[in-house]
Design a binder for these strands. Structure first.
Lengths: 209, 209, 209, 209
DNA sequence: GCGTAACCGAGACGGTACGTCGGGTCTTCCG
DNA sequence: CGGAAGACCCGACGTACCGTCTCGGTTACGC
């Protein structure tokens, strides 16, 4: 957001030449910047390799050389957003799950281009198996961190030992996806604590258990 | 599934003429049949108005006359699948939720063209606001039934009164969507009971509450 | 040459719609006009389907629908030039051959876009067998007329009966091609009579025969 | 035709390193060999600098360093074919012209890669002025030899003194070009003597002169 | 009972974007 | 400095669909 102003519009002065028989990082940056800008301006529709190439002042073959399809490019754009906000592990499972849902999912998507990109990625994955695989792999990595946190909570005795950690994470991630895909991220921000409490306490009447 | 064999392949003999200044039901049927067939053969990708028109031996304007865009057409295709399987209300919340997840969601999608269509619809909704609205409205109607069931469980004392019914339904629907969108419906079939139990009992260690 | 002014530059007002499920002559005219204009402006290099489509305000698929490749399009452009100048048959073989070389070949190419197009066609035929075939067929038709004239001269006794008429025509056409391909049409204009005389009288010293 | 076997297919073992700050003849040979091979395999179409570079295991800049464009490279390829077959000067104009047409032109092109290269050169010259100039110069040199022979025939009294020698040569060369460009070299082989006789005796009925 | 309005199949139209190919330039790294 | 390598920008290729349009023909309805 700070140094891509020159590529935001093709000014004619930013032409990048080859720097020899190796990948030119400036071009890759410019392409990712342009992809981001295109998504920002035109939304998911209107995202095309052609538009990105034009905005980046790059040739289409240069894009196809490094990203096999638009999905891969979008995934890279998304990865650049990967916030490095601290993921606390506070010692409280509830606080951790709230932070997960807030910082890493809904809150990360809220008011952010990231939501647009991720929605597009999921849409793409419905059509393109490669996209689906990439998305799945990416997501498994994200989930693993939270699974570890739940396992720690089990050791602390905070969490029931028979609980399937992955299932818990899935429930939370699923909820976030669902709201994202229905365009209800903002509304869902207010439900974060209620969701976590639901997942933690369950629906049954504890007096009757 | 029973009377569309003749349109499955354009045999040349099925040409439908106009029946006057009114909608020809045969054409509409043929178009929906063709749309279904195209989805069956080519998956979500490969679904194009052009392909449907060709398969249905219909003109493109005939399609556009009755469905404003491909999303509307797909939604109609999906509606034809709307299963009328009994939705029991057995008196047991757990059994009802399992049935919901099984009959209405994952099990309905399992081994079915419905999954393909629904995935496509969700993908479409990411781009097309009209699709998103239609999808949202459709889904709200489906959720309402289950919300009522939970409310009944509250009255029975089976479910805690402070529970947000919609949230519970959302958790279950979200889980199903998530698995659908990742192409993991089959695998998810085996987790149905675990999911319902998770939602019902929560993750916390009940001995420490 | 008379009614294509509006298409010469895309003015925005000339958009041609479909006129139903059949070829739109206006589009074909506009495309040929545009092709001619592109050749006029950019020469043979710079002639691209893309440029023609842009200039004609036509979609590329519309061009490809009717002309399988750029060669076919160029050939059609050339055909439009086919001058309908009278081809005399004056009763004098020499005068007729001079007129052929002058009106139909070198003179036709002189100071004309036709030369550019024909050179490009010949060049294209070296690469593309379809172009070669089309060119050959076109040329055979043109030659046939002159062969008939020579045959008449034979009947008049003006031409030796053992002469191979086609060979005579070939010599003259070949000479014209050669000069065209070397870009020497203008210079060759001055040699027309000498060439015809050479072909008619031969090189041998008649006193020694 | 004898030492280029190793470059015919890039075997991986033939990489030529630099030999210091001067032109590496092996590379030049390899490039010409590769160009020839590419022409042989893919014909005129399919001849690209890229293909030659790949086949020769050379970098594109190495080619561009020594040949300004593809035309120059093709011209060099053609020059390597310059046959040194004896050009007789038998003392008979007819025999000499037949030999010229046979040995140097049609017969040289017959069943030969030379035809392919020469056709490509002519095609290139239609687009590229430099190619046209080079081709013209090359051809003038070839013609000069035959012009001398005709001049000798004039001195012998065999040829009419008022005849334009260059024109005679042009007629013959033109005929050969024409047949070459239409891909009719083989068929034209059988017309060689008839052509020469036509040029020598002319078409007019000698009894009426 | 006859004109007309709306439907139907068909397919051309102007477009946008796709993913690929090759052109000619440039730069690095190695010898 | 020569040469291999290959990335770079660019422009054109030929294809697939989009959504619109007009056609010629076919009923059924309303005047």
């Amino acid at each position: 957001m700070d140094l891509k102003d020159s590529q935001a519009e093709p000014t004619g002065a930013v032409t990048r030449k080859s720097i020899g028989a190796r990948r030119n990082p400036a071009s890759q940056e410019a392409i990712l910047d342009a992809a981001e800008a295109v998504l920002n301006e035109g939304g998911v529709a209107g995202f095309s390799i052609e538009a990105v190439a034009k905005k980046a002042r790059a040739g289409k073959p240069t894009i196809y050389r490094w990203w096999p399809n638009r999905t891969a490019l979008m995934l890279d754009v998304y990865r650049r957003f990967k916030n490095e906000r601290p993921f606390p592990d506070t010692g409280s499972l509830r606080a951790d799950l709230v932070a997960f849902l807030d910082n890493q999912l809904l809150g990360f998507w809220h008011n952010s281009l990231a939501a647009t990109v991720y929605r597009a990625l999921i849409a793409e994955a419905q059509t393109d198996q490669a996209a689906a695989d990439a998305l799945y792999a990416y997501q498994e990595g994200r989930k693993a961190v939270v699974i570890q946190i739940i396992e720690k909570a089990k050791l602390r005795g905070e969490c029931a030992p028979e609980v399937n950690s992955e299932l818990i994470v899935d429930l939370i991630v699923s909820y976030a996806w669902h709201q994202l895909l229905l365009g209800r991220v903002e509304a869902a921000m207010g439900t974060i604590e209620a969701v976590v409490d639901s997942v933690l306490h369950g629906a049954l009447n504890s007096t009757t258990r």
